[in-house]
Design a protein around this nucleic acid. Structure first.
Lengths: 159, 159
DNA sequence: CCAATTCTTGACGGCATTAGTCGGGAATTA
DNA sequence: TAATTCCCGACTAATGCCGTCAAGAATTGG
């Protein structure tokens, strides 16, 4: 899984949608609105929502009074699914036989293989445990256990 | 923190160094050796080790019979430190006032801020919990604990 | 001192990926 | 019919990164 700007924007947009969708219930929300509130270009949002739609996370309605709706309640829409829908999974290592099995020649060169696999799994587990509702209601902070105070750090996982 | 190929190579090289350094104890290991075993370019490794050295993780010895040594035992060298040394920390969000405090206008646009911050922390905690020794001895897999099961149940108080 | 080895440093280029754009098309409503 | 909104594919521009090159400084051994 990759975490670029695409993923961020997608989650931002979905959070916005969840919020707006909760207020005026049932009525679709237009990309135009979302684009304006989140300060993103509408054209780019179209790209993202096309993927979100194909991923089954949102439902589109065309024509006047059209827009997008969440397929499922915010409390059942996991962040991991959003990111998965918009970002292509990328292979972390460049070992032969690259899939989940990892490199067979476990010696020497690929000692770190397990590490990245585990880290990936770790991130996944976290993102699967957070829903859109959690984000909208600010119930995300403080889920990392026992962080020693390295606090300055900013993270990102690719440009 | 960023997780690109640089970080991977750095950890690979450090793992190789830890291993080799354990066998012939005390003797420095040359970049040439490492480059060959890990199939990386020596010139590139030089870049990485320059940063690792400045980060205080390895000690260099010049001249014939020179090379690099670990500053600390493999069991005390944390993966997080390695990555921290070679990858520039990068801003995740593009909010104003971008540092650790996050955007003050918490409404609207930056709902997702907390999410990325928490994810970053999560990754950090994990990488701090793994040492070079763990990697070399294959003691990494299976550390992903199931996060808080599902958000709803989390916060409901029992009658 | 000389010569070989190995780290040190800074600058540079080519490649790849990605963010973001544009224009035309199709469905829906009124 | 006309307006609105989603739909789609191709295109551009730039950013960042991997990796290279070249000249220099310290150390060892003879």
């Amino acid at each position: 899984m990759k975490l670029g700007a695409r993923a961020r924007y997608a989650v931002m947009a979905m959070a916005d949608l969840a919020r707006r969708s909760g207020e005026l219930n049932g009525e679709p929300v237009t990309l135009c609105e979302i684009a304006e509130r989140q300060e993103l270009s509408q054209a780019y949002l179209e790209q993202l929502f096309a993927k979100l739609r194909r991923g089954g996370l949102v439902i589109a309605a065309r024509g006047p009074k059209g827009g997008y709706r969440l397929s499922y309640p915010a409390s059942q829409t996991r962040i991991a699914d959003i990111i998965f829908a918009v970002e292509e999974p990328i292979k972390v290592t460049r070992c032969r036989g690259g899939s989940s099995k990892g490199c067979l020649t476990r010696t020497a060169r690929c000692l770190t293989h397990d590490l990245w696999e585990e880290l990936g799994r770790h991130i996944e587990v976290f993102l699967e445990s957070v829903t859109l509702a959690d984000v909208v209601e600010h119930r995300v902070l403080g889920r990392a256990h026992a962080g020693p105070a390295h606090s300055e750090a900013q993270y990102s996982v690719s440009p």
